[in-house]
């Protein structure tokens, strides 16, 4: 059975991960857009993003566009894997662990 991820299993962080996980490969999302989608405040979102970045689950790219600073955010490979593992864990709570085939059991 997959394991729970305490860091991800917090409502806002779960939403952040779900939002970023819906992006195409290599695609980033601007901080302001993420904030609007999640209807979060700057401070609240920033705190959770820092926590997730510290865990290596997402990458925050700071750059200038038209002389204005902006932050672009995307999941890292580790973040994507951690999110998918946690979702699998949640599903297994509801549906039970996946059945092991007889061939796999013999090995």
């Amino acid at each position: 059975m997959a394991a729970a991820n305490d860091l991800i299993h917090q409502q806002m962080r779960l939403r952040i991960m779900a939002t970023l996980n819906a992006l195409h490969k290599g695609e980033t999302m601007e901080f302001t857009r993420l904030r609007n989608i999640l209807q979060a405040t700057d401070g609240n979102l920033g705190t959770h993003l820092n926590t997730l970045e510290g865990a290596g689950y997402l990458e925050i790219i700071k750059e200038f566009a038209d002389r204005k600073p902006r932050s672009l955010i995307r999941l890292t490979r580790a973040g994507k894997t951690a999110f998918e593992d946690h979702v699998r864990y949640l599903r297994e709570i509801l549906e039970g662990p996946p059945a092991v085939s007889s061939a796999a059991r013999r090995t």
């Binding site: 939403r15 779900a18 939002t19 819906a22 989608i37 949640l90 709570i93």
Partner: peptide, 27 residues
């Protein structure tokens, strides 16, 4: 960490809603 089936169902529902909204807005 212990998560009840009710909490798991609510979290999955939240993930699904957020994912759908994010994917649509991305399109």
């Amino acid at each position: 960490m212990s998560i009840t089936p009710e909490e798991a169902a609510a979290a999955l529902q939240d993930i699904n809603t957020t994912h759908t909204r994010s994917a649509t807005l991305s399109v």
